[in-house]
Design a protein around this nucleic acid. Structure first.
Length: 112
DNA sequence: AATGTGACATACC
DNA sequence: TGGTATGCCACAT
């Protein structure tokens, strides 16, 4: 287990920074953290998100197409979509509607 | 060091 | 929409 590695911690941190009603992608987070091509690790980090003390809005993190690729890892496959719709995000066929509009890029929003 | 793995990304069918 | 295949890189064993 990764325990509290800095990398994972950063991933959770960025995930928590995602504004309500917005979404981002694994690749975007990876890029922001400087590991651009290791987007897989972001997803893996999310897998451990559940074991974190603080809640991590993993439902706001989707793949590059805006598809809820990680829904299967929640308590129930519906949960992810439910949470998103609860924030005003519409989901159709496991894909975020207006993903481009709702997309929140940490590398862009958090850069100084 | 080597091998296996993955909530990705991209390409192709 | 779905499946397969390849590249990618950090982590686990």
């Amino acid at each position: 287990m990764p325990l509290n590695k800095d990398f994972f911690k950063d991933v959770y941190d960025v995930a928590r920074l995602i504004p309500r009603g917005r979404v981002t992608s694994y690749g975007a987070i990876a890029k922001y953290l400087g590991i651009g091509r290791a987007s897989r690790m972001v997803g893996w980090a999310m897998n451990s998100a559940g074991s974190q003390k603080k809640h991590v809005p993993a439902h706001r993190v989707v793949n590059r197409n805006g598809m809820l690729s990680g829904k299967h890892h929640f308590s129930t496959p519906y949960m992810m979509q439910e949470l998103l719709e609860k924030e005003g995000i519409k989901v159709k066929k496991d894909k975020v509607v207006d993903f481009e509009k709702l997309f929140w890029d940490p590398a862009k929003e958090l850069k100084l």
